[in-house]
Amino acid sequence: MPAAPDLDLIRGTLDLLLLKTLSWGPMHGLAALQWIERTTNQKLQVEEGALYPALHRLEDKGWLDAEWGHTDRGRKAKFYRLTPAGRRQLATELSKWAHYTEAVGLIIAAKGVRT
């Protein structure tokens, strides 16, 4: 068990992460979580308590479809899949994110105040 990374998820980015994760294909909740953890080399830990409410909210908004299916090991699990609307939403969120990080980066990189 690696030490819990000290990186809290920035509020509001969970939706983006889930949409992006599911853009690779249908997954159940645990798989999505593990994928995020694996991809970030455990640097980012999604709070599990927030994961399922987020998934269900996204489903309610029509960005995800949820259906019961079977895992590779034959277990019954609930799979989430990006809908076309979800794919559009992902594009929007991505460009918002790019603008945001660009702006934050500019502020951080700035050297003093020019007058």
Binding site: M1, E48, K76, A77
Partner: peptide, 23 residues
């Protein structure tokens, strides 16, 4: 029932994962 099944699947999966790592 739907929600319970989904959450239980998650918990079972986690436990198995951790046990696979030797816990």
């Amino acid at each position: 029932a739907d929600v319970d099944a989904e959450l239980n699947f998650h918990i079972e999966g986690r436990i198995e994962e951790l046990m696979a790592r030797g816990m």
